[in-house]
Design a protein around this nucleic acid. Structure first.
Length: 380
DNA sequence: AAAATCATCAACCGCCAGATG
DNA sequence: CCATCTGGCGGTTGATGATTT
């Protein structure tokens, strides 16, 4: 993000964003939507470059961000897409809902490259390394350099070549993917425990992507598509109603998804939930919250979000603030004192609305920031 | 316990392309 | 056309916490 002329004149802050700045930016964007980034700092009273605001929003504040560890499936998808697209992180990120290019890039550089290398696969070419290459790669790893992949090179390979059924390397969703089966299993367990993905959107998106890629003439194998489909058929992406959202102690923490249990002893509880009467039957309600913000949105059958009227603004106050219209809190066990039980929440829900939450997967699509004001989605 | 090393990731840099006047 | 502005992208850096020596 280069410093543009508009930014040079003023003294602008750099470095990490403070909670206060985040709050300002978040409140501004949720209220007015994404428009001209260069005017955002002024209008939101931020001493930041517009591009810095944009980056902060995209990489961190955006409500539809998924956080936490990459799942095995995501990992496989990244590797496969990387083979086809090279270091086109933005395009790869477009295929992974809730992930940013920056996040994927970091993940690739810090983990996947090494993982592939350990498996004897050249992360650049995605082909098996010979001994000579191994030495070369070792040097590369030791002296960090960009690993640009000539696109033509990626083009020559197809995802199908990675399928286990077609010989090594084994890169597709398969627990045998890793030499260390324990690692794969552990990774999956962690993922399952932190399920944050909306499997349907994930799958839809992937399908769409395959079609799009076909349009681009990219050699995306139908085998891979089938592989993903099979995963869904086998419920390897659980539509999980047992997860909800914990508090947001810090904006910089990423894993706040807490397993939700109907067992009162678990301590994961919902404080209150007031439903909006405007929900129609085709809408899914997605909700998340923290103990300091009130969030709710309607996820329509068309796949978009609808903003609920009077949606709460964003607040970093540590105290609980009840939204005048609604509040849904799912809080970590240690915060449970003042909150009602899950059953009470359910009862409240059934009393005030007709939607049975247990029928819908709850995702952490934005943790506490989710859906505070969803007109934003329509701007993006 | 302290220093050194490693890993991670948020944020910046530089460049490019499209829009606009 | 040309200059400027702006958004977007990929590469890189540096702060920070974790791990190792």
């Amino acid at each position: 993000m280069g410093r543009h002329s508009c930014c040079v004149k003023q003294k602008l802050r750099k470095g990490l964003w403070s909670p206060d700045e985040d709050e300002k930016l978040f409140n501004y964007i949720t209220r007015f939507g994404v428009g001209c980034w260069s005017s955002v700092p002024k209008l939101a009273a931020l001493q930041r470059c517009g591009k810095s605001c944009r980056l902060r929003w995209i990489n961190y504040l955006r409500p539809d961000l998924k956080r936490g560890m990459f799942s095995q499936q995501e990992e496989d998808l990244i590797i496969s897409l990387h083979e086809v697209l090279g270091n086109r992180w933005a395009q790869i990120a477009a295929q992974l809902p809730g992930r940013t290019d920056n996040e994927i890039k970091n993940f690739w550089n810090s983990c996947l490259k090494k993982k592939l290398f350990k498996q004897g696969i050249d992360p650049t070419t995605h082909k098996p390394l010979n001994e000579g290459n191994v030495k070369e790669e070792k040097t590369k790893m030791e002296s960090p350099q960009s690993m640009q992949i000539p696109f033509s090179q990626g083009h020559s390979a197809t995802i199908s070549t990675l399928l286990p059924s077609q010989g090594s390397p084994h890169l597709i969703s398969d627990s045998n993917y890793y030499d260390d089966g324990k690692l794969a299993e552990t990774s999956r367990e962690i993922f399952m425990g932190k399920q944050t993905l909306d499997p349907l959107s994930y799958y839809d998106n992937f399908q769409m992507t395959v079609e799009q890629n076909s349009d681009y003439g990219l050699p995306v194998s139908t085998n891979y598509q089938t592989s993903i489909m099979t995963l869904f058929d086998q419920n390897q992406f659980p539509t999980n109603s047992n997860y909800c959202f914990s508090s947001m102690p810090s904006l910089t923490n990423s894993d706040h998804v807490t397993e939700f249990s109907s067992d009162n002893n678990s301590g994961s509880k919902i404080s209150s939930l007031l439903m909006n009467d405007n929900n129609n039957n085709n809408n899914q309600v997605k909700e998340s919250s923290s103990n300091n913000s009130s969030n709710m949105c309607i996820y329509t059958s068309e796949g978009g979000y609808q903003m609920m009227e009077n949606a709460a603004g964003f607040s970093w106050d540590t105290e609980n603030k009840l939204d005048p219209l609604f509040q849904f809190n799912a809080i970590k066990s240690e915060d449970s004192k003042t909150n009602n039980s899950w059953e009470e929440g359910q009862h409240h829900l059934q009393t005030h609305g007709s939607i049975d939450f247990s029928n819908y997967p709850l995702t952490s699509l934005s943790e506490d920031l989710t859906g505070t004001s969803f007109d934003v989605f329509q701007h993006i």
